[in-house]
Design a binder for these strands. Sequence first.
DNA 1: GCAAATTTTAAATTGCCATTTAAACTAATC
DNA 2: GATTAGTTTAAATGGCAATTTAAAATTTGC
Lengths: 227, 227
Amino acid sequence: MTNLSRMNFHGAQMNLRYDGRETRERLLNAACEVFAEKGYRDATIAAICKRAGVNVALVNYYFGDKAKLYVETWQYAFEKKCCGQNLPEIDGFPPKKQLYLYVLSMLEHFLDEGEQGWFTRLYLMELANPTGLIHDIWHGLIEPKRRTLIQIICRLMGKEEVDENVLFCELSIINQCRSLLTIRRQDLEYLLTQPLSKELVNRLADHIARFSLAGIQEVAHTNHLPL
Amino acid sequence: MTNLSRMNFHGAQMNLRYDGRETRERLLNAACEVFAEKGYRDATIAAICKRAGVNVALVNYYFGDKAKLYVETWQYAFEKKCCGQNLPEIDGFPPKKQLYLYVLSMLEHFLDEGEQGWFTRLYLMELANPTGLIHDIWHGLIEPKRRTLIQIICRLMGKEEVDENVLFCELSIINQCRSLLTIRRQDLEYLLTQPLSKELVNRLADHIARFSLAGIQEVAHTNHLPL
DNA sequence: GCAAATTTTAAATTGCCATTTAAACTAATC
DNA sequence: GATTAGTTTAAATGGCAATTTAAAATTTGC
């Protein structure tokens, strides 16, 4: 069996023996951890295979190359480890509380070392160091989350339509969260002069929600900076 | 002349012939551009030397290795290309306007392709992908800027002392700016549904200042999120 | 149980990049 | 203008990581 005849078997599906499926899955799990921890560039195939306890050649056997493994890992992490449930149920709450819950859900995986945090970490790693490899998937996965936040903002501003001010507010909010998640832990602790803890994360979420709420209401009212 | 006897000539100073000084400077300039554009990891010595028009061996000859070149590039960019003037003169303005000027100064190098932007870009590249190499320099260069912002916030909050709320606000502000500068241009244009322009950057600076001003005043007053 | 297909392995290959080497070259000094 | 110190060059070296190969091992279907 030449490699050529395998060429297009690298989808998720076919011709896999039961033991094959298992190794493939082990690789995906290991890839989740390593990619989430190191980012695409710094993650080595060797490290992934070591963590999975399999031979280095198997990445190419099952996925073709590192880039394709990365893409599959993304989808896998989304479907198996996150499954759209990254956002808590926020319907029915007043919009102020919705904003708080949204922010909190972005931050709360921060200290989470477990499976829940993998997708979030992959996401943030990609934000910090875009590989461009997941461009196609990105849209479908991120856009729904985006829409949720935008709706909350619109409601808080009393607007029916999305305009520049709404998008600016969206940026302000996600950027406050994003940077917190991408900054090195030690740097954040230096800036805040205290060690990270669950409580600190909660206070931060609280702060960002209040800070942003006031910001949203401010820019909803007037259109020029009072100097 | 063995390499050993050169060992500690890699400082900025000694024993350089006039033509040597010139090549050294050409390397530093090229390094500014390449490091600022690619970040430490993705910048190759070959690319830097090509841009400088010199032989690859000269990086090691003049600086020892890539890491030392990076550190010297940082200092060089700060002294020659930025020189502490990254911040505009803000004394004498009311604190609200000071905040606006501070934000604007962080954003305005964004579209700047010239020498002025190099240090800012190096700085942001380091934030996005910390090498840890400039840890020692960092403090001295960044801390003064930080202090400026913190003072503005304190004034706006009517506080004498720096507390957690002040630091949270500082984070909120610099994170809004940071992410804008580190996000890929195409991604930002996608999020805002319009091409980047000088005017857009100005409106963004305006937004961030107003948004943050309201946020600061909000958290200065109360200590709990009204849900 | 046998044959075919699939999986796994160890080792080789390839490519990229930092770093070194040693010889050729150039400027400065006397 | 010869000697010395400093500079530049092309080519070699060495390390790391992705990828390939071909043979060995295992499972599956009959």
